[in-house]
Design a protein around this nucleic acid. Structure first.
Length: 328
DNA sequence: AACGCCTACAACCGCACCATT
DNA sequence: GAATGGTGCGGTTGTAGGCGT
């Protein structure tokens, strides 16, 4: 049941968007609202396919998006969320209001990957003095590492949210802490970009025609649509710990991870596809329904903030934090 | 100044899912 | 239930701009 590519029509323009095209698109959306993208090229006269229009809007033109200049907290969150969720950029983006998945993905690929690789190399070199880094990491070690990373993710999220909350009441609404209870309102508030925003945007263009890499703003629509796919085929798509340092042994360890670990009060299990079990991590059941209320987020929220971390982990956490601090 | 290489990121592509008919 | 349209998502590519020689 294949479907033809949306851009099969001859005459559709590709490549960078011009300011004029942007204005046309924004003006149209201002008048008609976002959605029904197929109608956009026809109604606006843009020589762009519907998909291109949608992407341009969601990744670039939407108001309220922060671009570039990732803060340390954001970096930490991305690193930890990536470790937890894999390359589910949309899911990660949902925890970073104002950031688009594309932005995060790019940042990961261009900055963080390298940074972590460097760190990893550095650590390996360091470890060679003592324990050999080539020595396979035992199952127990990985289990502890996973616990540690989970805790760190919680910490990073707490930090980030507590830092940003006071200043960004509106923008942060999609954040986990307030997500579930007020979702319907949030959904409207984020999607419903205001006339003011668009006017500002247009003003910006008039005064300052954006360069190709110009900064504009948009909000993170996808914060409200957590529809991650667990079938991401890339190797990096599997949840991994400590940034792609997952060895086959470690993977196996994760896959067989259960509550047998004596020092864990909460069981974290992974199914055979590398997904966390439903009792611990929320993204297991997310494939199916594209829920109005993104249960996974709420569950993750609970999980991140609520259920206690096993006792006796503090020393592990400290240990790991030291390790991670090299990064920042 | 000219050239080539590298980096960052906007945009594209293809696939998957969901809703509607 | 099948076909189709619309949209979301992640991976990849193209290219502008920066930098070194």
């Amino acid at each position: 049941m294949g479907r033809p590519p949306c851009c099969e029509k001859m005459g559709t323009k590709k490549g960078p968007w011009t300011p004029e095209e942007d204005i046309i698109l924004v003006t149209y959306i201002q008048e008609n609202g976002a959605g029904n993208w197929r109608a956009v090229p026809a109604k606006t006269g843009l020589l762009r396919c519907s998909k291109s229009c949608r992407l341009r809007w969601t990744n670039y033109l939407r108001p309220g998006i922060k671009r570039g200049n990732f803060t340390e907290n954001e970096e930490k969150m991305i690193i930890h969320l990536q470790a937890l969720l894999g390359n589910r950029w949309a899911a990660i983006a949902s925890y970073l209001p104002q950031r688009t998945d594309n932005d995060i993905k790019n940042y990961w690929n261009t900055h963080l990957k390298k940074k972590l690789k460097k760190l990893q190399t550095g650590l390996e070199g360091h470890m060679k003095d003592g324990y050999s880094s080539l020595q396979p990491i035992s199952k127990g070690q990985w289990e502890r590492r996973l616990q540690t990373d989970i805790h760190m993710a919680k910490q990073a999220l707490c930090e980030a949210l507590s830092m940003e909350k006071p200043d960004h009441h509106v923008d942060l609404k999609p954040s986990v802490s307030s997500y579930s209870s007020t979702r319907s309102i949030q959904s409207l508030s984020t999607y419903a970009w205001s006339t003011d925003n668009v006017s500002r945007l247009l003003e910006g263009w008039m005064k300052n025609p954006p360069k190709r890499r110009g900064k504009s703003s948009e909000t993170n629509i996808r914060s409200h649509n957590i529809t991650t796919r667990e079938d991401s085929s890339s190797s990096e798509g599997t949840p991994c710990v400590a940034n792609n340092t997952l060895s086959p042994e470690a993977l196996e360890s994760l896959l067989t991870f259960d509550s047998s670990t004596p020092d864990t009060s909460q069981s974290v299990s992974l199914d055979k596809t590398g997904n966390y079990g439903s009792d611990a991590v929320p993204f297991q059941a997310e494939r199916k329904p594209k829920l109005e209320v993104p249960a996974p987020l709420t569950m993750l929220e609970k999980w991140l903030f609520g259920e206690g971390v096993g006792q006796g982990q503090d020393e592990l956490i400290d240990l790991h934090l030291d390790e991670t601090d090299v990064l920042f």
